[in-house]
Design a protein around this nucleic acid. Structure first.
Length: 422
RNA sequence: GGAGGGUUAGGCUAACGGUAAGUCAGCGGACUUGAAAUCCGCCGGCUCCGAAAGGAGCCUUGGGGGUUCAAAUCCCUCACCCUCCGCCA
């Protein structure tokens, strides 16, 4: 959510940001409603002031044992007028809120302007893509041959875009989760196991609503949503809170499954682990002071990169251009790991700074050492998304005999197993 | 699912329908060599005026309605919490 005063004073900036993010917004409507709101507020304040003084007078008269009926009948019409104006004000405010809810966050100044894929900028790469003297297999073939995943069974019970991990496949999944959580814990993140369903407010606070309702699974009987990422419950931990400055930065890490409708994606990435309705992810979330958020963003990205490095997975860091930025994001790096079997980069992490956009909706603030109350900045990043990482892992570390070597960092989590063999 | 009780500011806690009292913590200041103690102020939001410092007004007792000149208080509704019953891993 953007601040109304900011919108009023930076109309061009807000309009440009919306255009850059390919969002259609009604700035005229917002500004005229805002003007009407302030006009009504001024009017109603004066009336309320008069009414309050009259009420006090009634109180005085009654306490003095005098008759107040004349004053009461005189003030009654004013009180009714206040009611009318208040009703009108509520109407204007709710329309205004509705419109402002659709305004996307402003991209940071150093975010390249443009649209994907051309507009995105690769800022650095790590690792050499492996060279094979045989034709590397895609992960879904490896997984099937090694008995790690049964896509057919998943399809029978749930449908396409689901995976069912078996045996070592299931253990590998669990090992990766534990490995990542342990790693982030050592980096100073507090581990969280949050609800996997959240209410509408939580989903609104992080910016998934109102725009993306069609992309999410909803439990109709309770108006709950299945979380599309742990970002939602974890960012909402401090809803309506005033934190103290010396608590910041706060770092959380959480493993959760993530549920995504992927509406409109049918026919794309239909095989394997690249696109699923449900996938596991370890997430990192930070709350910090505004002046620290861009430094924290770099550190967060580095923490996500550390996971890929430890797994010996070559990747590149992509700075998203304005047209690829999410609704709530101000700046975002995607980490794309190389998947030689399917011969492409797969997005396995997204590290974003939301500045105060989510904090304003969550009403998450902190008190400075001098007693001032300010909004925090929120950030999050995947550290990292499992399914695609498993795909990259199998494809990158495969050998000619169809086996897969496990990176050393993962072996302690799998009874020191060195390779998965047929 | 049923019955009852509850929700007041960062925490705790008052208020016969009469205009939110205290307290602890925190911040600033006074006092002090320094600290503690003590005292004073601040410690939600919006609008307007002002270059600013600041000032004025309104709103804020879980959310939203209603009754009333006036609502923390009465009524309706929703959310959440607690207790008991039922069901249940």
């Amino acid at each position: 959510m953007l601040d109304l005063k900011f919108i009023r004073e930076n109309r061009d900036l807000v309009e440009r940001a919306a255009r850059q993010k390919n969002a259609r917004v009604d700035l005229d409507g917002i500004l005229s409603l805002d003007e009407e709101r302030r006009r009504l507020l001024g009017e109603v304040d004066v009336l309320r002031h008069d009414r309050n003084r009259a009420s006090e007078e009634v109180n005085r008269l009654k306490k003095a044992g005098q008759d107040a009926s004349e004053l009461i009948s005189r003030v009654r019409s004013d009180a009714e007028r206040v009611k009318e104006l208040e009703a009108r004000l509520r109407e204007v405010e709710s329309k205004l809120f509705e419109l402002v809810s659709y305004l996307p966050n402003i991209p940071a100044p150093d975010v390249p302007e443009g649209n994907p894929p051309d507009g995105n900028v690769v800022v650095r790469s790590w690792g050499e893509p492996p060279r094979f003297d045989f034709k590397p297999l895609p992960h879904y073939e490896l997984a099937e041959r090694l008995g790690l995943i049964d896509f057919k069974a998943a399809g029978r019970m749930a449908g396409s875009f689901f995976a069912l991990y078996t045996g070592l496949g299931a253990r590998l999944e669990r090992a990766l989760i534990n490995f990542m959580l342990d790693r982030h814990r050592a980096e100073g993140y507090l581990e969280i196991a949050p609800p996997l369903m959240v209410n509408r407010r939580a989903m609104f606070n992080t910016g998934q609503l109102p725009k993306l309702e069609a992309d999410m699974y909803r439990v109709e009987s309770e108006d709950f949503f299945l979380i599309p990422t742990a970002e939602v419950p974890v960012t909402n931990i401090h809803q309506d809170a005033i934190l103290s400055e010396n608590q910041l930065p706060i770092r959380y890490t959480a493993f959760t499954p993530c549920f995504r409708l992927e509406a409109g994606a049918y026919g794309k990435d239909t095989r394997g682990l690249m696109r699923l309705h449900q996938f596991d992810k370890v997430e990192m979330v930070k709350f910090c002071r505004p002046e620290d958020s861009y430094a924290e963003h770099e550190k967060l990205t580095a923490d996500a990169e550390g996971v890929l490095q430890a797994l010996e997975l070559p990747y590149r860091v992509v700075l998203l251009c304005t047209g690829d930025l999410s609704f709530a994001g101000a700046k975002c790096y995607d980490l794309e790991a190389w998947a030689p079997g399917v011969d492409r980069f797969l997005e396995v992490s997204s590290c974003s700074n939301f500045e105060d956009f989510q904090a304003r909706r969550c009403n998450t603030r902190y008190r400075t050492r001098t007693g001032e109350v300010r909004l925090v900045h929120t950030l999050n990043g995947s550290g990292v998304a499992l399914a695609r990482t498993v795909a990259c892992l199998l494809e990158t570390h495969q050998r000619p005999d169809g086996s897969v070597v496990l990176p050393a960092a993962l072996r302690p989590y799998l009874d020191n197993l060195e390779a998965i063999t047929p």
